[in-house]
Computed example of a mutant assay.
Amino acid sequence: MTVTEVDLNADMGESYGAWVLGDDLALLDVVTSANVACGFHAGDPSTLVRTCRAAAQRGVVIGAQVGYRDLAGFGRRFIDVAPEDLYADVIYQIGALDAVARSQGTRVRYVKPHGALYNTVVHHAGQAAAVVRAVRDLDATLPLLGLADSALLAAAERVGIRTISEVFADRAYTAGGTLVPRREDGAVLHDPDEVAERAVAMVTTGEVLSQDGEDVQVDAESVCVHGDSPGAVAMATAVRAALEDAGVTLRPFVS
């Protein structure tokens, strides 16, 4: 689907204690939506307060980036968690971040899975259903941000939850429209010009060139740039500039 208006999101709030990851303040000057960690895969309470405060000051929309309970693995390892446990974990994470956000004059406006959970709920019906049920039972007005044609978005649509399809400017795609696993060479892109060019193509033509050299159809309602990637701010800035130069309006998908 070709669009002339799109959201630009990035992962942030992922620092923990003495470990600083990404430049959240600089990214918040570029993006329109912030996927903020909830403490399970990354993010300590002080980091989350600072991130939510800075987002509120800039008018950036906050989303809860829910993940597996996996600090050591940064949430990038699959966990065969029982659906009932995942359901509870997702409710807990959204509720915790929303409390932090409200204390800083804003609130959680959408939900996006993180890392291995994000990739798992593309195909894993049980875990996708657990995430959707948690959002529905907590606040069914919260949109779910995810990959087009995923089990997650299909399950959300079945219960009337709004879905937002996103694309990844700095990740390689398979011919099947999924993300190339991070363990494979070339899975993560680092050149700002290349990343910006791909973002414009995805938004304006609805297509992206896969790692296999095939054109893949994508649905770009939101464009993601990973906040933990080296040069994330430069890439996000290049993406925003290129989209605006192409006549695309940048604005969050929720007001």
Results as ranks from 00 to 15, higher is better:
106 T>F: 01
211 Q>S: 13
185 D>F: 06
119 N>L: 02
60 V>D: 01
79 I>T: 07
191 D>Q: 06
149 D>V: 06
94 I>E: 00
168 F>S: 05
39 G>T: 02
121 V>I: 13
32 T>E: 05
233 V>W: 11
50 R>S: 14
169 A>K: 07
189 L>F: 08
193 D>G: 05
199 A>R: 07
71 L>T: 01
88 A>D: 14
65 Q>L: 05
129 A>Y: 04
10 A>C: 15
187 A>H: 06
165 S>Y: 07
216 V>W: 10
14 E>V: 05
175 A>Y: 08
192 P>L: 06
242 A>H: 12
167 V>T: 12
83 P>V: 09
90 V>D: 01
150 S>G: 03
255 S>R: 14
232 A>R: 06
76 R>P: 04
5 E>A: 14
102 R>D: 10
144 L>V: 03
31 V>H: 08
84 E>H: 12
52 C>I: 00
147 L>Q: 12
204 T>G: 04
178 T>Y: 04
117 L>I: 08
62 I>P: 07
242 A>G: 14
171 R>Y: 04
163 T>W: 06
242 A>T: 11
167 V>H: 04
195 V>L: 11
153 L>P: 01
24 D>C: 03
92 Y>T: 01
132 V>S: 03
72 A>T: 07
133 R>P: 02
108 V>E: 03
105 G>S: 11
19 W>A: 07
139 D>Q: 01
182 R>Q: 09
231 G>M: 06
216 V>F: 12
3 V>F: 08
195 V>P: 08
212 D>M: 12
187 A>P: 14
117 L>S: 13
31 V>A: 11
187 A>Y: 11
64 A>E: 00
206 G>S: 09
